[in-house]
Design a protein around this nucleic acid. Structure first.
Lengths: 131, 131
DNA sequence: GCTTGACTTCGAGTGGGCTCGAACTGGAAG
DNA sequence: CTTCCAGTTCGAGCCCACTCGAAGTCAAGC
């Protein structure tokens, strides 16, 4: 309907909004090699395909789970090399999965410490009530 | 038995090892007001009491659960003000607890994305097996 | 045809959390 | 008495992940 949305591609601003990153960050990711060079329109402006946006979304999940940008770059390089790296990519994800699980377990333990502390505060408040 | 461990206090190096931080970080925490000024021996060296170490341990849990140093400082300030801030400190912990829970939920979702991806890689590897 | 606003590149700046080097001091072991 | 080690202070430096300002370009709307 709107000629500007024709062709199923998004501008950097639109893509940024979709994936929850800023336009600055999107350009920086490309520059850092986390994203393969994005297609351009006749005026040299980036046009993000659905595939590009999916890739960016995946990157945000990796990032959010604590993967360093360095490792994301390595992953992106593997992906660009095609099917021969499928095994390596899976291994990378499995290793990362294990780290995320460990992190969750750690958070669970830390949560128990917080709970104990909250309890201690409740008891202390009870004792100080009348003072 | 060892005269140097007399008095139940630890040097900065020992304390660092116990809580899993570096001596640099321990001094920096003190400088940043995350830790009240630590007692000194006759030569001006820090001596960490059991209480100091417990406090440091708690700080490491807060840090590990993603609390910014800024908030840890605020918490330390409250603690230094005594019992009148018990309620505020509990509130701070409860708010933080909620954030940690949210973070864990988020990690759980992200984990599902990772699992789907691992699955996709497995299937792709199966398909490429003979090539 | 002019204005507006989102885009472009480039390099510099920011904020968080440490991390370190330099120069010095003091107590314990040989 | 000397050597050594672990401490002291101070300010500077580092790494990460963005974040931004400046100067310019271009297409669309009025």
């Amino acid at each position: 309907m709107d000629i500007s949305t024709r062709q199923d591609t998004l501008t950097v601003g639109e893509a940024a909004e979709r994936v929850g990153l800023t336009t600055y960050t999107l350009r920086w990711y490309e520059q850092e090699g986390l994203v393969a060079p994005v297609g351009r329109d006749s005026a040299g402006r980036r046009r993000y395909t659905t595939g590009d946006v999916d890739w960016l979304f995946l990157l945000t999940r990796l990032r959010r789970t604590g993967m360093p940008v360095r490792d994301m770059r390595r992953y992106a390089e593997l992906a660009r090399q095609g099917d021969s790296t499928l095994g390596a990519r899976r291994a990378l994800f499995e290793a990362h999965r294990a780290r995320v699980l460990a992190r969750m377990a750690e958070l669970g333990e830390d949560l128990r410490v917080l709970d104990h502390k909250i309890d201690a505060y409740r008891r202390a408040e009870g004792r100080c009530e009348g003072s």
